[in-house]
């Protein structure tokens, strides 16, 4: 099968895994690579990348808007688009799949998520991910092209749940880094992780997703992998912010960005309009906007009435 991949960072890993399965890959990127797996041809032309039916969008959320502007004029009903972004858009928290369907004429869209790292994709370490789509054929295409003897691709019909999980675990990771930066130990962080996940579940449910999806690869799987040190920068950024840097300064000094940072404001607005209990997200938003200190955030969270451990 001819497969297109847009984006040279994470996209390179996807291209490698797909090429390993014997498929022809067109990788659209401006980067140049010294070595690439056989079967991958590199191009800067989106038209060329969209020759096949299946296209992976592996650009980071901030660049997605720019790419989308061009895709609007190129995509049609033939394409199956699968994104790996960790974004939610606007105060109504539109998922990237929803944006793709609204802005382009593609309908068969899906999301790939879970603890997929370079080590798994490029080096072939055992691993797994989850692909979610309303279209079973999209799930089948991803399994056929990306899955292999050492890469297990699970399918899910809960697109909303997977997209919310992918977008919000980054925020939770940031919160955990923040907690560690304030000097809290594993017990505090354990509570933070569990209550944070409860908030993710509430958002997912409000958007039509299922709670159990978040116990899977797109939720806990992703979080555990990041906490175990898969190289995602959110934890370190959280630590740096807790120690007094602004988010901008921390991002600059660590040469990284929090993919989900901009959605914290959206989440706060969403929580207010839907009357949704998201105390951790709201407190984090207040800290990042400089309205309260980390200590005040902790005090606010700990002084809340405590009830049943419902989600």
């Amino acid at each position: 099968m001819r497969v297109g991949v847009i984006g040279g960072g994470f996209g390179r890993g996807i291209a490698s895994a797909v090429a390993r399965g014997g498929h022809d890959v067109t990788l659209c990127t401006r980067r140049s690579f010294e070595t690439l797996s056989p079967g991958i041809s590199v191009t800067t032309s989106l038209e060329e990348t969209l020759q096949g039916e299946l296209v992976y969008l592996a650009v980071p959320s901030p660049s997605l808007g720019t790419i989308l502007e061009q895709l609007v004029h190129l995509v049609d009903g033939r394409h199956r688009l699968v994104h790996v972004s960790r974004g939610l858009v606007g105060t109504e928290l539109k998922t990237i799949c929803q944006v793709l369907v609204q802005r382009t004429s593609a309908r068969r869209v899906g999301v790939l998520a879970g603890p997929l790292s370079d080590a798994v994709l490029r080096e072939g370490n055992p691993g797994g991910g989850v692909v979610a789509s309303d279209y079973p054929e999209v799930i089948r295409y991803v399994r056929e092209t990306l899955g292999g003897p050492r890469l297990r691709i699970y399918g899910s019909a809960d697109r909303q749940g997977v997209e919310v999980g992918a977008a919000m675990t980054g925020i939770l990771l940031f919160a955990l880094g923040f907690g560690a930066g304030m000097g809290f130990g594993p017990s505090t962080l354990g509570m933070l992780a569990a209550r944070g996940m409860a908030e993710i579940v509430r958002v997912a449910r409000e958007l039509g997703g299922r709670a159990e999806t978040l116990t899977g690869l797109a939720g806990f799987g992703d979080l555990m992998s990041a906490v175990a040190g898969d190289g995602r920068p959110e934890y370190a950024l959280g630590e740096a912010v807790a120690k007094g840097q602004s988010l901008g300064e921390a991002q600059k000094s660590l040469k990284a960005h929090v993919e989900g940072a901009q959605i914290i404001d959206y989440l706060c607005a969403f929580a207010a309009s839907r009357r949704l209990e998201l105390p951790l997200v709201v407190a984090l938003g207040s800290v990042l906007r400089g309205e309260i200190s980390g200590e005040q955030a902790v005090e606010r969270l700990m002084s809340r009435a405590v009830g049943g451990e419902g989600l």
Partner: peptide, 17 residues
Amino acid sequence: LAPDGRVIDPSEYVRSG
């Protein structure tokens, strides 16, 4: 019509390969 006003072929939506 695609969202940008292009004329598109609806038959593509029910084709595979």
